[in-house]
């Protein structure tokens, strides 16, 4: 009888050790999974931020807006006549530019010599959360010849959806 009880106690000991071991293991997995989830969310946010920079870069180099002289493109310069034509084109080809810009709003304001409020150049799908990028640009008015330059600010809002 005594030996039976001893064996049963040993068995119980082994089972208890296993239970504690698995409890620690599951606790570790739970903790690790939680950490991974947070890291994944942070990575997603970084990806969205990177995407907003890519879109801002694409827009600031857009041939539809850039000043050109023959084949020479001028950096950070927007042709006013092209800008006006682009507003019409973008509203006619919304779906095409949606695939290029994703969920973006492009606005421009002249700050010198005259100061104007932001006018919308393109508006995609919007939401409450966005990344804003501001790009100072020259605005070229080609007419009347020889044309004149102003200084403007391009504001690009990249909207994110959670």
């Amino acid at each position: 009888m005594k030996k039976n009880k001893k064996a049963q106690m040993k068995m119980g000991e082994t089972i208890a050790v296993l239970i504690v071991f698995f409890m620690i293991l599951f606790f570790g997995i739970f903790f690790y999974a939680n950490m991974e989830r947070k890291s994944f969310q942070s990575r997603l946010e970084k990806m969205e931020e990177k995407k907003s920079i890519d879109v801002a870069q694409t827009i600031s180099f857009l041939p539809e807006l850039k000043c050109t002289a023959e084949n020479i493109t001028k950096t950070l310069c927007i042709d006013k006549l092209k800008l006006d034509a682009f507003k019409t084109l973008a509203s006619e080809r919304t779906q095409y530019y949606q695939s290029v810009f994703s969920n973006t709003m492009i606005e421009i304001a002249e700050i010198y010599p005259t100061s104007t409020s932001y006018e919308t150049v393109y508006e995609g799908t919007t939401s409450d959360q966005y990344f804003s990028t501001f790009i100072p640009v020259s605005i070229f008015y080609p007419s009347p010849y020889p044309g004149r330059y102003g200084i403007g600010l391009l504001r690009i809002k990249y909207y994110t959806f959670k």
């Binding site: 539809e64 006549l81 092209k82 034509a85 682009f86 019409t88 084109l89 095409y96």
Partner: peptide, 10 residues
């Protein structure tokens, strides 16, 4: 096609 359309309007 897009750029030429834009230049045409301009």
């Amino acid at each position: 096609h897009l750029i030429s359309t834009l230049l045409k309007v301009r």
